[in-house]
Structure formats: structure tokens, C-alpha cells
Design a protein around this nucleic acid. Structure first.
Lengths: 340, 340
DNA sequence: ACAAATACAGAAAACGTTTTACTAAAGAAT
DNA sequence: ATTCTTTAGTAAAACGTTTTCTGTATTTGT
């Protein structure tokens, strides 16, 4: 019932081969013929059947995004969906489609889900959260020459391609900014030791401090659970030290919320007495007052880059390992200011 | 190079028809034969080529989620991604895949993007944000008998299937809860008049008030921009009225943030002097203190329902119009309490 | 014991494209 | 005029499945 390439060919008085050439903008078709075919296609509202085309040309113009997609995830981590939006945007522009591959499948291990997807040839490439990239998965991908981009640098040496943010560099930026505005005593409101992003940032903090000729004192580094009350206590304690910090770096915006409250309730002014800088812009940042100066990464464009890199690999599978590190940026708002 | 059904057939010493039957769990294949084929499939690591299967059986085991996916959206509206997670979860369980269809395509109108996708048969069904469901799109979908679920009730009478939340009912719940805890004077912290969700909630508020025998006075209804400072002012003004409200309903969690601050800074206690209830649980709700009592909808399971309904329509296209309205639930936290 | 029904297996025809020859015609070069 | 290229177009063979139809064996019912 739906119109096929045969209908177009018949109606236009040409062969299906010619129609195919028109569709795919191939050479060896006269201008007038092309026009004629295009007109018929338009009239009959023809769009090629994707499956048939996929089968014949042996690729699918589809890309998989492999991750877990569980309940509440978007609230916990809206960031990853901003990456997905970026990927989708870029792929859409280039005529590719993005499918979600949920690695949480009842009764199947993530590798199995992935292997099945690859074998079934539903997609030409893969964007995968690096938490799934264990050596076994690496072998699988390399063995099949399957174009891929990992989101996040895999935790071992690999010749897979990846794309990541640079937490160390972010810390550097934060430290340098605070010092340049005149802070002398810096503190770090951290998360828990299992949080690798936080630990990366902390490492960056230490080296940045060293590079700037400052001493890192352990009592200025706190490890906090993700609870605003505990954070508040912790920050209050920090401010009661014999020589309290005049600059605080918060590993995320939740820390910032609790810390801001602590500073205010300690009777100190922001940023005059204590400056504050946080990582990751978060939707509720603008709601906090004063609005926090923030260091973040444009994750949407990270996604765009990932999509772009992947398409290049798809077009040229011989392409060597690709990596890309997104640079952090400083969003100057009201919790930091150059001091007199 | 990749293994095909022919390889399996040869290796197992049967015909490809038999292998196909095994793959698809069809009848008329002996137990021993089935075992033999399965063993070979396992050995050769065979997974059927999706495009070929799609072409032959004339459906794709794929579903589209049509919406805009622009930069920053996940921060503005994490809710919609919770729906997507739900859909993906449900579809994955049933062997279907979810593809994102970005309706923002350079140089193409949303209807065109949609029409192309439908004609190309990349998917067997569609989940679509009802903001795109204009009469033209309705005609398109009905004409092609394309199984679909709208997220949100379309703004006109339609025989398309949709799934939605019930904002009116939510308001009812809120009003009833406040009154049952002993509040007498209720106020509504609203958004802007263009916000249809808010207007729905407001409508529900009015009817609920009436049903409960309370009078709705216009000065207790405020319309606010999404800015915490303005909200704060607005709420403060409310509390300065000759007979201030002892119960406030906030149309979203942002309102709650500003309002809580206003109540506190007015020297009033929550919930002893003023109770507060907000719509939509938001990730930062737990961070606010006191934690707001909230009325929300489980959007993940809304997504699960949507996926489920769609699969039913795909299996039985003759199925009549389906609708589903998710019920709101009350999350009792610290801003409401039964009064002595 | 014999017809009828059923279980199993395979051959072959789709499904709707792309691609690879191959032919015919038209131009260019000798 | 003759040969050599280039261009335009086509017929036919993939691509890897599903499905229908046909033909045997085997079971079941009488």
C-alpha cells in the first residue's frame, strides 16, 4: 500500500535504479530526468523505506546511546541528559537518529545487551557511558571495529575514543580566580571519598594550591554527605576556625546552598568577607541568593562534539583513537568580587 | 563476514526457514532440532540482522519519542526525561527500542520532520509531546493509522490517544489536605497567566474551594514571574494582609523556596502559623528546609504506562482511543501538620 | 487397518532498497 | 569516417530475513 521506489519509477517512466540515484544524489542522471523524478516523488509523498535501505547499503543511520535510564535519574543527574540533547541535536542535523539503549535489562548483563545490539546491526555507532567500559567491552568493540565514543575517560589505558571534562583544570580555575580576587585562606567543601568526580576536583585543588604557592591544610578540606543540614554544620565549623577561610570552593551546587546559609547565619558577608565558588551550574543555582559564581562545562556542546566525532569515525572507520576534553568556563556571578 | 541465518542453517544441517522458526519461537519445529539450532546459534554468536528482519516482517520494533531536545532543557524540565526513562524502561522490557526524534530540525517544520519519519517506517509507533499535536498532525497520524500516544491531553477534541496528569485533581488534594489540617484562609502562589499548567491548577483550586464551602478572594491569588526575589516580595505582601493566609499553595517548587523564606523572615512558624504545600517534587526539594509537603505525580510510571499503551496499540491497531490520567499523590513532609 | 489430522521440514517468493555490471547514445579525438 | 571516452540509463543481483505453500512422516480416531 505505501508508495515504493517502483511506483515512482513507473510514474516517472524510468527504472528504479535511476530513482535510487536521484534519492542518493548520485551522478549519471540527467538534469531533466532528476527534476522529473523529484516531482513525482513529491507528488506521491514518497520517502524511502528505511529498513530496506539499511539492509541494502549495510548501515542504519542510527546511533545508540548506552546507559542506564532508571527512575529519578533526570533529577539526580540532569547533566547527562544535556549531553544527550547535544548528541541528538548534532546527529539530527546530519541525518542520523539516536536510540537509547538501556543497559539495565532484566536477566541480562550489560555486556550482553551491548553485544546483542552490535550484532543485530541496529546502529552504526555507539556512545557509551564509560562506567560500562570494562576490558571485556573494550575487546568486544575493538573486535567488531564498532565506532564508539565513551562519555568519560575509561579508567584504564585504552585505544577507544573518549570525550571528557577536565576536573583538575576546573579546580585550577577556581583556585586562581579566588586568589586573583584577593582571597588568602581557601577551603574546600567536598563530597564523599567514593565520589570520583569530587576526588578529581580535590586533587586538582591540591596541585593548584601548590602551584600558587599556598599551603593546603587538611582542616580546610571537608567531606560531606549530600544533605543540606550536615553541609551547613560542616561549613559553620569551618568558619569558626581560628583563622577562618575567606574563600570557599564547593564541589557542587548542593554544597553551595548549605554553605551560603552557613556564611550568612555566621553574620558574614558574601563576597566581602567570604567568597564562594561552586562547580556545575545547576537549575536551582539562579534561585539561590546571592547567585553563586560557578565553574561549569557546556555539556550540550560536549554532546555535540561526541556526536560529531562519532560520525567521523563512522565515515572513516580506519580513523585513529580520538579524544576530546571540554574546557571549563567561569560564570561570574555574585559570590566572588575583586577586593579593594 | 557477519554470520547470517544461512551460516546457521548450513552448520545445523537444516533450512533457513527452520532457523527462522527457532528464532521467532514458532511452532512446528521438533524439540531436538530446536536445541541443535540454538546450540549452533550460540556457538557462532549469532544475532539476526535487524534491518533484514524489519524489512521482511514489516515492522521495526522501534518507537519514536518526538519532542524538542534543546540545550539546557534537562535543567528546565527534568520531569520530561523521567517520562522518557519510564518509556525506555518499559519498551526495553518488551524488546522495543526508543529513538529520539528531534522536532527542531534546521529548515524543516515539525510536521515535516514527523511525516518523513512516519513514511520512512523507522518506527512502529510514536510518543509525542502534545504541543506538536495540531489538527494537521492529527490528520497525518490518523490517515496513516500510526499508533501514537500524546504526552499531555491535546488542546482540542481528538480521537488520538493521550496520557496526562490531572492538575485539577491535584489542586483538590492540596485544598482538602490544608483544610483537613485546620487551615481557614488559603492563598495561592501562582505563575504567569500563559502557563497552562498553572492555570489548570488555579482552576482546580477555585472549584475545590467552592466545593469545600470556602470563598476564593482574589487578593489571595498571586501571579509571579519565575524569580525568587519577586516571589519573596509577593509572599511577604500576602502575609501582611489584614487577615493573612494560614495555608499557602505553591504552584511549583520555585514558589515554595521564595515563600518559605518569606514566611520565616516574617517571623512566622511553619507549619504552626502558616502551612505550605507545593506541586511537583523537585530534586532540590529535599534541600529546602523545612522540607515541603508536596503533591506530585510519578512521571516515570506515567512513562511506563505510555509505553505500555503504545505497545498495545501497535499489536492491535484497531484498538480504540485510549486515555490515561495519572493520579497525584501527597508526599507528607514538614510544612503541613494537623493543628491542635 | 485406513482415513484424517497433525507435526515437521524445506523450497521459494516476498520485503524495498542499493549497487554492479552492461548497453546505447552522444561527443571528442584522431 | 573511425575509434575512444564520457554520459545516461537499465536489468538483475544482492542484502538477510519472514512467510507461504507444499510435501512427507507420524500420530490419532474409528
Amino acid at each position: 500500500m505505501p508508495t515504493t521506489i517502483h511506483d515512482i519509477a513507473r510514474e516517472a517512466g524510468v527504472s528504479i535504479a535511476t530513482v535510487s540515484k536521484v534519492i542518493n544524489n548520485k551522478a549519471h542522471v540527467a538534469h531533466t530526468t532528476r527534476e522529473k523524478v523529484l516531482k513525482v516523488m513529491d507528488q506521491l509523498n514518497y520517502v524511502p523505506n528505511a529498513s530496506a535501505a539499511n539492509l541494502a547499503r549495510r548501515f542504519s543511520k542510527n546511533v545508540l546511546y548506552a546507559d542506564r535510564f532508571y527512575k529519578g535519574l533526570p533529577y539526580e543527574n540532569p547533566h547527562m541528559f544535556d549531553i544527550i540533547c547535544g548528541v541528538s541535536h548534532e546527529l539530527g542535523r546530519k541525518g542520523y537518529r539516536l536510540s537509547l539503549l538501556n543497559m539495565d535489562s532484566p536477566g541480562k548483563k550489560p555486556e550482553e545487551v551491548l553485544e546483542e545490539a552490535i550484532h543485530s546491526r541496529v546502529a552504526d555507532g555507539l556512545i557509551i557511558n564509560s562506567v560500562f567500559v570494562v576490558p571485556k567491552v573494550e575487546r568486544l568493540l575493538l573486535w567488531h571495529d564498532f565506532p564508539q565514543i565513551c562519555i568519560g575517560k575509561p579508567p584504564f589505558d585504552t585505544i577507544l575514543s573518549w570525550i571528557d571534562t577536565n576536573n583538575t583544570l576546573s579546580s585550577n580555575l577556581a583556585v586562581e580566580h579566588l586568589i586573583s580576587t584577593g582571597c588568602h585562606t581557601l577551603a574546600f567543601m567536598g563530597g564523599q571519598k567514593e565520589d570520583i568526580i569530587f576526588m578529581d576536583r580535590l586533587r586538582g585543588f591540591r596541585t593548584a594550591m601548590e602551584r600558587c604557592g599556598f599551603e593546603t591544610r587538611e582542616e580546610y578540606i571537608t567531606y560531606n554527605p549530600p544533605e543540606v543540614e550536615a553541609i551547613f554544620q560542616s561549613a559553620t565549623a569551618l568558619l569558626k576556625l581560628p583563622s577562618p577561610p575567606d574563600g570557599i570552593i564547593c564541589t557542587n551546587s548542593l554544597m553551595a546552598v548549605g554553605t551560603v546559609r552557613a556564611i550568612k547565619e555566621s553574620g558574614l558577608r558574601i563576597p566581602e568577607d567570604v567568597s564562594l565558588i561552586a562547580f556545575d551550574d545547576h537549575p536551582y543555582s539562579p534561585m539561590v541568593s546571592p547567585q553563586p559564581t560557578v565553574i561549569d562545562v557546556d555539556l550540550f556542546s560536549l554532546g555535540v562534539h561526541a556526536g560529531n566525532l562519532l560520525l567521523k569515525k563512522i565515515r572513516n572507520p580506519a580513523m585513529l583513537i580520538q579524544t576530546y576534553t571540554a574546557l571549563p568556563r567561569l560564570l561570574l556571578r555574585s559570590t566572588t568580587k575583586v577586593r579593594a
